[in-house]
Design a protein around this nucleic acid. Structure first.
Lengths: 247, 247
DNA sequence: GGTGGCTGTTGTATAATGCACAACGACTAG
DNA sequence: CTAGTCGTTGTGCATTATACAACAGCCACC
């Protein structure tokens, strides 16, 4: 499995460009990858000529190009799960009033694939393409509990005081998640945001993703949680049923 | 400007993968790029090892990988225009009841950067990342009329019977668009869908994008058009005013 | 159940290609 | 005006990607 070095370098550059807040300079990029300026320059030029990067005419710095967004769209439209899940996400929003999300396991986290916003003014929305940690989000916990490919994160980073940081506690939590068929995130990732999520299975019974709702803790009160969990479980089951029909 | 060949090949492969409905095989890809199977295999393996492509375990065919979606998210969150425009898109939906979109000029078309869905059951939504033709969409016409970088498409492809296919007619249309400050799409791209769009300018007075609404022709009647155009123009102006504040 | 045609992957020698080292022009700051 | 950036471009050399194979796995078809 010998990888093509210059392609690999180009892809690494893309990732660096993605992380750079206000674009990145050639010298900077070259230093990060430990390659020569000239190499970095030519690689980025190639990326730019295909629309994967672009140069700010004023500052001469480079940033990600619009082609990425277009490719991403292609990728998303080719996912059957996304199309199937959309109506159920809408239903989730209608019945709970909160924002709904669909995520799959990817890059060691929960990758948000689709969303439907809450009609309320106060919203908790995570954009499509975000990769959220597995151990402190409802969608992530569900994937961790039900997706056979999911691996426990090495480090359980604390995002809020409520984040579960002990592997033991998390394991028990996942056990409970499996028993009750849903997971919650009680302000464990972001202050004032609670979430509920359930797994989605395909016709083989394999977990292929998770759907859930998230909203301000004020609206998603602990008293309302059982009801919201029931609704989410029901709609998740309906989606699973639908996915089971295609052989 | 010597481009790095193997990186260029890798990027071309990415684009081919994006276009392939149900993934693409190595032999197929190699034939398309006119390179050897072995080269294609190793290039795609490299793409895969960075998450830009992935292999279906069953069919052994390759498709785009999830990393693309994540990068796309980074790209979008780094666009100031998008953040600024969001509230105005919401307002547009509130006041018209139709779906709202934000687009910029890219890849010879109108690249949809953001959207807010209509609350109605019958929706006309174009996903973020879509590149729509310039000559037959309201957003596209606006960009063509106001963005200095926009180039007239070589071929005015007819998508519906109403599509403007004559360069002369289109030129007059654009002239009118400039005069009245907004453009419409009267079922010129898709049957039964009408759109209204206006330009957005930055502090230099340069057109940086376009916002607009689109919905079923049944609701966006010809009688309602003047009113909808007025609303869209007003909100577009408000957004332009906001963008003018930052030096 | 073999057999032929397909797939995608892996070895290897050769030659093309990307690389490091420069030098360059364009800016900015002191 | 000089010293320090920056990004880009030329060029010889050596690494590297490549083309041509051969390979194992799969499916379908007599």
């Amino acid at each position: 499995m010998s990888e093509i070095k210059s392609l690999a370098r180009g892809l690494k550059l893309l990732e660096r460009l993605a992380l750079a807040e206000n674009g990145a300079g050639i010298t900077e990029l070259a230093a990060q990858l430990d390659i020569d300026k000239s190499s970095a320059s030519r690689l980025v030029q190639t990326l730019a000529s295909y629309g994967f990067a672009e140069q700010d005419p004023d500052t001469r710095r480079y940033r990600l190009g619009p082609r990425i967004v277009t490719l991403s769209r292609y990728m998303l439209t080719r996912m059957p799960l996304r199309d199937e899940a959309k109506p159920y996400l809408r239903r989730l929003v209608e019945r709970t009033g909160e924002g709904a999300h669909l995520a799959i396991l990817s890059q060691g986290g929960a990758l948000y694939i689709d969303q439907v916003e809450s009609p309320a003014t106060l919203r908790a929305t995570t954009g499509v393409g975000t990769v959220a940690p597995l151990h402190c989000t409802a969608l992530g916990k569900v994937l961790l509990a039900f997706d056979a490919n999911a691996r426990m994160p090495e480090e359980l980073k604390a995002y809020t005081p409520r984040t579960i940081t002990s592997p033991e506690t998390l394991r028990m939590h996942l056990e409970q998640t499996r028993r009750q068929g849903y997971a919650i995130d009680d302000e464990e990732y972001e202050y004032g945001v609670r979430c509920v999520a359930v797994p989605v299975f395909d016709y083989r019974g394999k977990a292929v993703g998770a759907i859930g709702i998230s909203g301000p803790a004020g609206r998603i009160s602990l008293e309302r949680l059982p009801e919201l969990a029931a609704i989410t479980k029901q709609i998740g089951q309906e989606l699973t049923d639908r996915l089971s029909f295609r052989p």
